[in-house]
């Protein structure tokens, strides 16, 4: 699971993560929302339970566990919902992006300075802890799910109502949510960054399916040639986006 399982930090983390016993086995990719509604957890209050958005395609996560995946699908849907403005993160495949991105050297701290000692420092010095990106997300998800189950009679984050999910995310964003093992604010900041990256990066990375996010904001994508439009003022840029593989949106 990790490139290097020998470091004490990683061993320690691995041991902790293995203690996570799946209590709700949510089906992963492509689960129709009707199936979800028929689970025993659905009762009269079901109407207020968030209806999970559907992940496009048949992508099966290989990094995240089913519980983590369910969390991410729900969180993506809150952070960038599908609405009248444009497509949501889930329908653009951001969960797939996240799962694939976690398996890059970047998410493993490959370009970060990761040596100790790890000292507490003022916020101006940025994150000074020992977690890499994928550990941050994984530990954060586990901690928020644990908090959720404790506070909402056994329900994981993905099973809460939209309003409850939003409240929890806001509370993490501000850092008011106190979690064991990780700063909720650190987790939230990293999650939001990654969700945005997946939403806006080239579709080859797994998100931004059919360049949906680029179309929404009017980004011509990877055209990278605007010589004839630098001084045009009186009309909007007319061409649709192009992605790295040369497809037109």
């Amino acid at each position: 699971m990790f490139d290097d399982d020998t470091s004490p930090a990683r061993r320690d983390f691995l041991r902790k993560s293995l203690t996570l016993i799946p209590v709700v086995t949510l089906a992963s990719a492509g689960l129709p929302s009707s199936t979800f509604a028929q689970t025993p957890a659905s009762d009269a209050k079901q109407a207020s339970t968030a209806v999970p958005a559907t992940v496009p395609g048949d992508y099966k996560p290989t990094f995240f566990t089913p519980e983590e995946w369910a969390f991410l699908v729900a969180a993506c849907d809150r952070l960038i919902p599908s609405d009248q403005v444009g497509p949501g993160a889930v329908e653009l495949g951001v969960p797939e992006f996240l799962d694939r991105h976690m398996q890059t050297p970047y998410a493993n701290g490959g370009i970060w300075y990761m040596q100790g000692p790890f000292l507490e420092a003022a916020p101006e010095f940025g994150y000074q802890g020992r977690l890499n990106l994928r550990e941050t997300l994984r530990i954060g998800i586990k901690a928020i799910d644990a908090y959720s189950k404790k506070s909402f009679s056994g329900k994981a984050f993905a099973e809460l109502s939209q309003a409850q999910q939003e409240d929890l995310l806001k509370s993490a964003e501000s850092g008011k949510l106190v979690l064991d093992d990780i700063s909720s604010k650190l987790f939230f900041t990293n999650l939001l960054n990654e969700v945005r990256n997946g939403y806006f990066a080239d579709p080859s990375h797994g998100g931004n399916k059919n360049m949906g996010a680029w179309k929404m904001i009017g980004y011509p994508g990877m055209r990278a040639d605007y010589m004839d439009w630098i001084t045009v003022r009186d009309k909007p840029y007319p061409l649709p986006p192009v992605d790295l593989s040369g497809r037109r949106g």
Binding site: L79, P81, V85, I217, P236
Partner: peptide, 16 residues
């Protein structure tokens, strides 16, 4: 806000 519909709207309005 940093996320949600209001952020999407603002980002879409501002980008170009």
């Amino acid at each position: 806000p940093n996320w949600g519909t209001a952020w999407k709207q603002a980002a879409s309005d501002a980008f170009r």
